[in-house]
Nucleic acid binder design. Structure first.
Lengths: 334, 334
DNA sequence: TTGAAAGCGGTACCAC
DNA sequence: GTGGTACCGCTTTCAA
């Protein structure tokens, strides 16, 4: 069922049918109506691929998550990634593009045949071959974190240093005297920035801060590290906990409870998390969100600008974090 | 940068370059090497859209979630959907197809231009216009639940009746005398099947079962219903709880705890959930999984068969559920 | 107002 | 072995 078939049936040329259906050209009302009616009656659907070839773009944006490539840890557990994927799909569609999921373990050839106009790479590795490949192909790439030393591409950045300062200030304001930070052991830029911010803050305040870095990603290893921190019990260990790795807030609460801590009385708690569960727990948990919806919006917007307006110079956008203060980090009722 | 450019540069025809790059045709080793070297040197990338037009397919499968269309409740909270999406993307890619995310609130024209070969519709509505539209366009559709009275399409089905029986048997075996089931208030086939199974099981056993149906989707309404059930406290309300709506296991545990129930001593608990958190809670929660990975596998496999082998008669596949028994539903240690 | 023809960028048939 | 050419299905220019 092609345009030419409809044309034959209607006794018109395919040019005319095309114009009639697309609302272009200068056609008499009669002809336009007749063409449309015939196409509709025959159940005609234009071939999308042919239109795209003609148009010169596919309006398709790839989406790949690179963290934990080849690791057993399933990133789908983490709300950050699913939030980001869905928000990206939404924003992309608002701009007339659709999002194509690229599973992280697929070899390059698998996606070489996809007509992608651009691609989002979440948590790229250093010198990520996927990124380099698309850059080399002249396809715009946006990442959710700036990678030092990369020549091209676009990025969206989170100001972790400011976030760390904000959380530490908040905890200090609530009376914390000994704050523990749980972070991932990585040499990524944002980890280093967070560490520098903590060291700097610590130097300016008369409040103890300690950092625990967790090697292995995943709930189990993080919860274990938190358990070790809290094992001494109330009054002995830290009196405030800031979990920067994304761990499920209810599970953190449970570990605290298991070791006899009452939140927030004995232990103030802030979790970096995108998990909606945080507001349903008892007590509700204060969360630091990197706002994946804003990241998605900024990232897709960058790509769309490049695609539609042909901008080419690499550049980045900074997105603010958001501290949602709930009972778990408040000594005095709000 | 097109094939013809490479051809000119190499002093060959575009046919030859194409054959050289694709490993087809009968070319001398020298020519093939020269063609490849030239293409590589020039950084040539074939235009995916053009290849697809020629090939007659795009190897793209759409993925749409229809439950909660136009509702404030964000389906991305539910692990079932994200698991299904990711598993589908994986399986699709294994079969040489990529998955395109279609946000549920987009109007039809938005995706009409996507060169989709097939589409997965998760939780379709009755007479879902999206499904009807693709069916009318002759594009294969697979749904994760059979819809009564639909003419075409393919579906993957879960045997909820068997699952309900299995869970009730398990709870009875652990000494439950008064089992409460929390379900969604829907007239979908699977809800009705679950209800029938419960009624039938109840008639054959001397154990009380009660059903609570929750109108509004979302954590809040379900947790409220569970709270109402458990409010009488230990010894008064049901001594076993089977939550068939997908609610986060840690939150259910918390509600039980709040009302003074100890799990599993006072209250046996089984949750239908795909949430990996269930095994990390204290106690770990017994879950009934509908196995989204198997659903994805079966669904994509159906579509790929249709696409590759041109099968057309509608048919379905049944996928088993999996009861993961953990401490929350065991009176005696395992 | 309508339609013929030239592409979009490849692939594949068939003649040389 | 190699290359001319038709064609995938649609849009667009331009001539009639």
């Amino acid at each position: 069922m092609r345009l030419i078939d409809v044309a034959r049936e209607a006794g018109l040329s395919k040019t005319t049918i095309s114009a009639a259906l697309n609302g272009t050209g200068r056609l008499s009302d009669d002809v336009r109506a007749h063409a449309r009616e015939t196409a509709f009656r025959m159940g005609y659907r234009p071939n999308a691929t042919a239109r795209l070839l003609r148009a010169g773009h596919a309006r398709l944006i790839g989406f790949a998550v690179r963290e934990y490539v080849d690791k057993p840890w399933a990133y789908t557990e983490l709300p950050y990634f699913t939030r980001l994927a869905n928000a990206s799909a939404d924003v992309a569609l608002e701009h007339g593009h659709a999002l194509v999921l690229l599973p992280n373990h697929a070899p390059r050839e698998e996606w070489a045949d996809l007509p992608l106009d651009a691609i989002c790479v979440v948590d790229p590795e250093v010198d990520d071959p996927l990124v380099e490949d698309f850059l080399a192909a002249g396809i715009p790439v946006v990442t959710d974190r700036r990678v030092e030393g990369r020549a091209g591409g676009y990025w969206v950045e989170t100001d972790y240093a400011a976030a760390v300062r904000e959380v530490l200030d908040h905890l200090a304001g609530q009376g914390a005297r000994d704050i523990a930070l749980v972070m991932a052991a990585s040499d990524a830029l944002y980890t280093r920035n967070a560490l520098l911010a903590q060291a700097d803050w610590s130097a300016r305040h008369d409040i103890r801060t300690r950092v625990v870095q967790v090697d292995t990603p995943g709930y189990a290893s993080n919860l274990e590290a938190i358990g070790d921190l809290l094992a001494p019990g109330p009054g002995e260990g830290p009196d405030a906990l800031f979990v920067l790795t994304e761990v499920s807030p209810p599970l953190v609460l449970e570990v605290a409870r298991r070791h006899g801590h009452r939140v927030p009385d004995d232990l103030l708690l802030v979790c970096a998390s995108e998990d909606g569960l945080a507001e349903h727990t008892a007590p509700p948990v204060t969360t630091l969100s990197v706002q994946p919806n804003l990241i998605a919006d900024a990232g897709i917007r960058l790509l769309v600008e490049v695609l539609d307006q042909g901008l080419t110079d690499p550049r980045g956008v900074e997105v603010p974090t958001r501290l949602e203060i709930r009972k778990s980090s408040q000594r005095a009722p709000a």
